[in-house]
Design a protein around this nucleic acid. Sequence first.
DNA 1: TAGAGACTATGCTGCGCGTCATAGTATGGT
DNA 2: ACCATACTATGACGCGCAGCATAGTCTCTA
Lengths: 202, 202
Amino acid sequence: MRNETRGRMVAGAVDLIRRRGLNATSVREVVRYTETPRGSIAHHFPRGKQQLVEEALIFAGREVSEPLEKLVVQAGIVAGLRDFIDAWRSILEQSNFEAGCPLLAVAVEQYVGDDGLPNPRIQDRLLELVRVAFEDWQRILSTGLRKEGLTPAKARRLSALIISSVEGTVALCRAARSAQPLDDIRVELEALLVASIAEKKA
Amino acid sequence: MRNETRGRMVAGAVDLIRRRGLNATSVREVVRYTETPRGSIAHHFPRGKQQLVEEALIFAGREVSEPLEKLVVQAGIVAGLRDFIDAWRSILEQSNFEAGCPLLAVAVEQYVGDDGLPNPRIQDRLLELVRVAFEDWQRILSTGLRKEGLTPAKARRLSALIISSVEGTVALCRAARSAQPLDDIRVELEALLVASIAEKKA
DNA sequence: TAGAGACTATGCTGCGCGTCATAGTATGGT
DNA sequence: ACCATACTATGACGCGCAGCATAGTCTCTA
């Protein structure tokens, strides 16, 4: 009967990974945090923590890509960029600069199992999910840029710059406890986009 | 007494945090990894893991800023950027895309102590060190940009863009197991720098 | 050459972890 | 009424962890 408990657990895992990172997020903590029954974790996620994290990454990726795709298609790449950045600013400010991007957290850590050793098998699987999510975002931005007349290569490079600089800036903002870096790169990225589009149209 | 053990421990902590992240790096693992005596950890770092990590962050920050400053002063900002990016590419490729930036790792996680809970006191101290290191890098790049005639505000924004995009890209490269994103942003960042400088001189 | 201070060896405590096993409860269909 | 199935409750197991304490060893100097 597809209970809501499962969804709460996934969303809670996303939120904890955002804040603490991958290895600092234990399944027991997810259970406490979401006030869900501890006994249900093995029931809903028979493959344990690995499965919970996998679903969290997929969920987190979609949470970004779905609204982004809608906006880029409807309002164009510049509006899409602005919204992309604003969304991250909200996450930062509403968490008092304690929350970041769960995908970045997984990309920067290595999964270490209960034996205290990195598990390459699981690590590869998680990185694959991170890669797919980032590629998805990049595809969306890239498509929007090509609609403005940019070449595929230029669109690929610019969308890579957007994603990596925003991801990096979110981390910088956490360290600085300020959204200033986000404002700074927003100005530069917008100007760069506008210039690249104008140049192509000339 | 000129003991090398201490230095090996700090360097080992840097390397492990680079690969695994902050919370996946245990003091005992540092000792195993560096083949240093376990009993010496409490001797050289009386404040325990916190102190070891603090020194690792300072060390890692300097490891970047010192060669960067030299190069920017001697060869200018464009050469500095190129070298900055090349250095990160080396770290990625020589580790088979398993190592990243230890500062970023700390910025993205929360320090969780042996009680399994985040420790805000220690977290604040670590974030402060990360902030200082990033600010140092930014100061160096910013100074190089102002020497080319850019305004302070523009120099601040561009240097923020450089640092955050490179940091973000290093993470993306780990997920993609490829240096392609780094090449992509290098092209765009160099073009942006050259254009910004030329525009100012006109 | 003897002693002091720097360094190393090793075991203990208490804790949280992920996983598994077992038992209990609720609910919907027949 | 019954029972299968979905879900929840709880405890045990073995592990690695950080921190600490105690005892042993080395080395430089006085």
